[in-house]
């Protein structure tokens, strides 16, 4: 199967980021929602997009096992391709590495140390970074800023984070970015929010500096597959 077969209707394209990713923009994105609505599924779709464009993706999963993370990739890829598994496509597989940490053991410094090991020994030099499970509730502005600087200094094209918003916390930024990221929204180039309404799972673009779609454009998620679709 040609890899290009899969680069159709993908989330980067939906946001108008595909060409820019190829050209090498540096962009930091964030997917927010309440727990269990499909943040990981979206991150994995971004990751698969990047991998199929030939970029190396390091998926950092905080609090989840390697197997569980791998299953996400298999599930999403299998939905996109009629049953293919990542392992069956070596070109895709070699572009991915998964690194998992305990909630308590993750820190930027430690992560950087691990990444340095990989890069210096030429084992794996990621171009896209996925960080799933980062605890924004206990991270201060400085910590997130450090991650942004880290991206800029380490030659990464993009970093995508996920963040959990809590139903009971109604704080919001002027752009509508909910807590706990309402005071650090300026550090991100793109912010998406999964917002279920009735039967529909809307994917709202709260902010997108680099997107070639208009802010306010609505995407949605297929509730059964969690694949991104245009509304």
């Amino acid at each position: 199967m040609a890899d290009n077969d899969l680069v159709v209707n993908n989330p980067l394209k939906a946001l108008g980021l595909e060409k820019k990713t190829k050209d090498g923009i540096r962009s930091m994105g964030l997917v927010m929602s309440r727990a269990g609505l499909g943040k990981t599924a979206i991150l994995v779709q971004f990751a698969l997009d990047c991998m199929l464009l030939g970029n190396k993706v390091l998926h950092v999963s905080i609090g989840q096992s390697v197997d569980k993370t791998r299953n996400w990739y298999d599930d999403i890829l299998s939905l996109l391709t009629d049953g293919e598994k990542v392992e069956a496509i070596p070109e895709v597989m070699k572009n991915r590495m998964i690194m998992t940490f305990n909630e308590t053991s993750f820190s930027r410094a430690k992560f950087q140390e691990r990444l340095d090991d990989l890069v210096k020994q030429e084992i794996f030099k990621p171009e896209c970074l996925i960080i799933d499970g980062f605890d924004f509730a206990s991270a201060d502005r400085a910590a997130v800023k450090e991650m942004r600087e880290f991206m800029e200094n380490s030659g990464l094209k993009m970093i995508w984070f996920s963040a959990v918003r809590h139903r009971e916390d109604n704080r919001k930024s002027a752009d509508g970015v909910p807590a706990p990221c309402h005071e650090i929204d300026d550090l991100f180039d793109t912010i998406l929010l999964i917002n279920p309404q009735g039967e529909e799972m809307n994917l709202e673009i709260l902010k997108c500096d680099e997107c070639t779609v208009d802010p306010g454009t609505k995407l949605k998620l297929d509730p059964s597959t969690l694949l991104i679709q245009k509304k």
Binding site: M93, N102, Q121
Partner: peptide, 23 residues
């Protein structure tokens, strides 16, 4: 020793699927 181990796998034509850090 994570770096050293990964290096040794890499030298052996190995493909690292993932690493799990537990304390």
């Amino acid at each position: 020793f994570q770096g050293a181990v990964m290096g040794s796998i890499n030298q052996r034509r190995g493909m690292i699927i993932g690493s799990m850090e537990e304390g």
